[in-house]
Write a protein that binds this DNA or RNA. Structure first.
Lengths: 191, 191, 191, 191
DNA sequence: CACTAAACGAGACGGTACGTCGAGTCTTCAA
DNA sequence: TTGAAGACTCGACGTACCGTCTCGTTTAGTG
């Protein structure tokens, strides 16, 4: 039982204000100009307190993603029974978010961070719903017979998320018909 | 003409050795740890000579991409008459390249750079053949009736390239059947 | 005759505008921040034209001193027959000049330059009249019997000029009675 | 009291090795080529540690002077009861020091530094004994009736130190009789 | 009157040093 | 023992000048 732990416990206040400061600085300065020093200053915390609990700024960002401090909502596809409509709406939601310059910059920063750190990559994919939620929706679609039996559900998700990420990277504004077209591409033209 | 240009001309030697050094350092250290100082040292060039002609390290990387110093070949899809086979082979080529840890790291670094700089993003997409070459191949496929008439060619390309990029970001090894599956997803299951 | 000189002659325009620019920059920025680049820019001259004719910025300053572009007049002691009065007036003139902050700064810069370059040192001493003019005046004084026969004229001059230079270096404002006191010290208290 | 000081204290080790390196580099390279970078390298210290505690290289030199790291001894005039002999010996000591080319160069560098920075000027004057020690000796002389009552003691000191400085600036070797002559000039020919 | 050759303005080049920012580590003091 | 404050070494930033080296243009003799 509890081998006689002594001294102060980890300060939850510090932890929270560090993550908040990370999110705020990340949004403000982007991944490349994110600095531990700046985070420590904004969080009114010593640098060592950060280094004690996180191994890198990537770890901070990954935890922020996990806590939902960076992406406003967890972009979840709805299930109205109409796959095409649900997917289209889901894509539209993400693209709408990426349309605002500040959000787009944040998004790109996330991609940069993800490209440089595995954890961030996984968290980002999850946050975009590419794994569980989207897969579940597509699975439901297959059960309803709305999806061809041979195609891989995971691959469909990747193609959708990947296409969106590519748009964001290249900074090309998405035309209004893009969501519809994307759905057409991965589900086939039918409908 | 002759708008009265005076003074020594730009040194091609310096330009080339700077780009070479950039490519070498980029491959060796990655985007995040790429430094102008390191490039200048390897190129045996004054830093000012770099700052005189490029506004940032992103510009250097973009020019390297343009000159084909970073991606070994321009990943062009062949045209054997069989779209599915051609696309599958093209995807396989890219994934094979991304399979080697060093190449994968380089690839991720490129994505990070692209996420932080528009020019790099555009050049990267071009280098992956997502624009012209791939579009041309898909166009040919449509003429041959191998492609459903409604789907957008550009969007198909984006879905493919995006899916690959996502794999690389997340560091998930691609199973051998992935290329086939991706083609199935975007072209439909038929055959 | 002459060994067949060919090509354009040295441009007097360039020479003059370089020296003028040197004097202006020297007064404005001081010895330490004087730069060949700045001089070339102000003189609207290529750097090479400077390096062709002067070996260093010290040489430029020395030539400026020689041409009287830095010290407004060549502080010459008058000869009214009264050595004490003449020397006092001469010291007062120099101290008055050094009283203005800009002149004092210029003076200090000259001392710095002189300490770092022999030529500048010699020219500066000459410009202060420490050699010929002052010596001549003291010589006259000795002939008139106003100076003790044993003391070295050169040494008297050095003591006077040295004391003034020291004041300027240390930035101590000279009290009004200083000139008189200095004369007392080197000529003895008598009258 | 205890005004709540937190964080590590200033490292005395660093302070000392920086001053030592400053003195060594100053002697080796002179004032003009003295560089913060060089000092930091020799002291094995980060540049920031220098900038944190000193505002300029002049401040470093001033502190070196204060700590006696630049001028080997504090050139103090002795008091044997014979002013002329004491002053002559004191001047000889300084001139002997300035006779060695390396010392002379160091001396000139000090003058250059003093001309460009007030603090260095004051410290240099003090180090030469021109203020307290010399004044005390002259004061004693006056009490003994060896000094004319009217002359200013401070001015005598300035004349002596100034004359020496001038010699050094102009790089004129001092003849053996100079100390004697200087004393004659400021104390009168008597004796 | 061409032809050479020097001097000129402009400015690119390889470098050194600047003064600043931030990284990650270590030390001191308070709670 | 944690946490704030902050000093430490180190690496890189982007800028200013250094002194050298092309460039084309202008200016003088020389053949």
């Amino acid at each position: 039982m509890a081998e006689g732990r002594r001294g102060a416990l980890r300060s939850e206040t510090a932890r929270v204000s560090i993550l908040r400061a990370t999110a705020s600085q990340f949004a403000e300065r982007g991944w490349e100009h994110l600095s531990i020093e700046g985070i420590a200053a904004e969080a009114e915390v010593g640098k060592q307190t950060i280094y004690r609990w996180w191994r890198s700024k990537a770890a901070l960002v990954a935890e922020c993603l996990l806590e939902g401090l960076l992406l406003p909502e967890a972009f979840l596809p709805a299930d109205t029974g109409d796959v095409r409509a649900d997917l289209t709406a889901w894509i539209e939601a993400i693209l709408r978010f990426a349309d605002d310059p500040r959000s787009a910059a944040l998004f790109r920063s996330l991609i940069a961070a993800a490209a440089e750190d595995e954890d961030v990559g996984v968290r980002l994919r999850d946050a975009l719903g590419a794994s569980s939620a989207l897969a579940a929706r597509l699975d439901a679609a297959r059960s309803d017979g709305e999806l061809a039996p041979g195609v891989s559900i995971a691959v469909v998700g990747e193609a959708l998320v990947g296409a969106i990420i590519l748009r964001v990277i290249v900074r090309e504004a998405a035309p209004p018909e893009l969501p519809r077209q994307l759905v057409d591409v991965v589900l086939g033209r039918g409908g």
